Amino acid sequence: MSQIVKLVASKQPATHALIFLHGLGDSGHGWSFLGQHLQAMDPIAFQSTTFIFPTAPTIGITANGGHPMNAWFDLMEWDPEMRQFDNAGYLKTLNSVVKDYVKHAMDEGIPAENIILGGFSQGAAIALGSAISLPWKLGGFISLSGFISCHKELFVKLDKDLHNKDTPIFHGHGDADPVVAVSRGMGSLDWIIGTYGFQKAEFHTYKGLQHSADEQELRDVYQFVKKCWNL
Score class of each variant (00 low, 15 high):
P54A: 08
D42F: 14
G140D: 04
T55Q: 07
L34E: 01
A45S: 14
G30V: 13
I61E: 12
A56Y: 12
K137W: 01
Q47T: 11
G119T: 06
Q216C: 14
M41H: 04
D42N: 15
P168K: 01
Q84L: 13
G187N: 13
F51S: 03
H204F: 14
I192Q: 03
D86I: 06
K226E: 12
T93L: 09
W31G: 11
G23A: 06
V225R: 02
M106C: 12
R184W: 03
P135I: 11
H67M: 15
T195N: 05
A40F: 07
F155K: 01
L94I: 06
K165C: 00
C228E: 04
L91Q: 12
F147Y: 12
F73D: 10
I132D: 00
L162D: 01
I61H: 07
G194W: 05
M1G: 15
H37E: 05
A71Y: 08
T15D: 07
F155L: 09
G118D: 06
L158E: 12
A181T: 05
L117S: 02
F51Y: 04
H104K: 15
G187T: 09
K103F: 13
S32D: 10
E113F: 01
S32M: 10
M82N: 03
I193A: 00
Y222Q: 05
K92M: 10
P111F: 05
S183G: 11
V156Q: 07
D42W: 04
F141M: 06
G109I: 15
I193V: 13
Y222K: 05
S27K: 14
T167M: 00
W78I: 13
H204Y: 08
K92Y: 07
L134F: 00
F53M: 13
K165Y: 00
G65T: 09
H104N: 14
W72L: 04
A56T: 08
D42E: 11
E215I: 14
G65A: 02
I192M: 10
G30H: 09
Q3H: 12
S188E: 11
T167S: 00
S32A: 15
H204S: 07
I148Y: 04
I110M: 03
F51C: 02
A63W: 09
N70G: 11
G28V: 10
E202L: 02
H151F: 12
E108H: 13
P111R: 01
L158F: 06
A56V: 12
S130M: 09
K226P: 08
F203W: 07
M76V: 15
S121Y: 05
I59V: 15
A124H: 01
K226V: 07
E153M: 06
Y101P: 09
Q12V: 10
I44R: 08
E202M: 01
L128S: 02
L134K: 00
I148L: 09
C150M: 15
C150S: 10
G197L: 14
H37S: 06
T55L: 08
N70M: 11
V5Q: 13
S121M: 00
A17M: 07
V221D: 03
D42P: 06
F198W: 03
K157C: 14
F147P: 04
T15H: 09
Q3C: 12
G35Y: 08
G123I: 04
S212G: 13
